[in-house]
């Protein structure tokens, strides 16, 4: 299976080209060789926000501008999602027979903010608060048109 950060097309099982579509527009740059999360910055106080929002919760200013967030940071805290989430809203695999536990954490992006994200690592032995993490794009599900739906995650930096 693929963690593909190189492009929008990957080789499917049959060798055919499968199109990757983002879980939503406007949350991360896609397609992109180096995808980034899209946030907001307060014009008045410089506070960073994610996802994009109007209005600043820090200084109550009303004007914000769009900003691309950093791709690397450190793991601030984490857990492991050990049971299938309810669907909806979850779009991934919820079959108890095949469900794979996945990591979830907050990654601190220096000078910006802490981002909640899926983690590519789900082994408690391998997750440590403070470890270096990098943003990647991971497959989530297949939509009605046969496209692979992708979302963002953070992976330990090897």
């Amino acid at each position: 299976m693929c963690i593909d950060v190189e492009g929008r097309h990957i080789e499917g099982r049959e060798g055919a080209t499968m199109v990757q579509v983002p879980v939503t527009d406007g949350v991360f740059t896609w397609p992109s060789d180096h995808p980034q999360l899209i946030g907001s910055r307060c014009v008045t106080c410089g506070n960073h926000m994610f996802p994009v929002q109007q209005g600043c919760p820090k200084c109550t200013g009303a004007e914000t501008e769009e900003v691309l967030l950093g791709r690397r940071g450190t793991l601030w805290t984490w857990t492991v999602q050990g049971f299938p989430p309810k669907a909806p809203p979850y779009a991934g695999d919820v079959d108890p027979k095949t469900f794979q536990a996945f990591g979830v954490g907050y990654v601190e992006l220096p000078g910006q903010l802490k981002i909640e994200s899926r983690l590519t690592e789900a082994d408690p032995e391998k997750l440590k608060i403070g470890m270096e993490m990098e943003m990647v794009i991971v497959p989530l599900s297949t939509d009605a048109h046969g496209n692979e739906v992708v979302t963002f995650a953070f992976a330990p930096v090897a």
Partner: peptide, 23 residues
């Protein structure tokens, strides 16, 4: 919250509790 948040598997209150006590 946007639909992407739940779709991506993050809309679970249980995760918050795990992460807060882990920290």
């Amino acid at each position: 919250l946007g639909d992407w948040y739940g779709a991506s598997g993050l809309a679970l209150t249980t995760q918050f509790f795990g992460m807060k006590i882990n920290r």
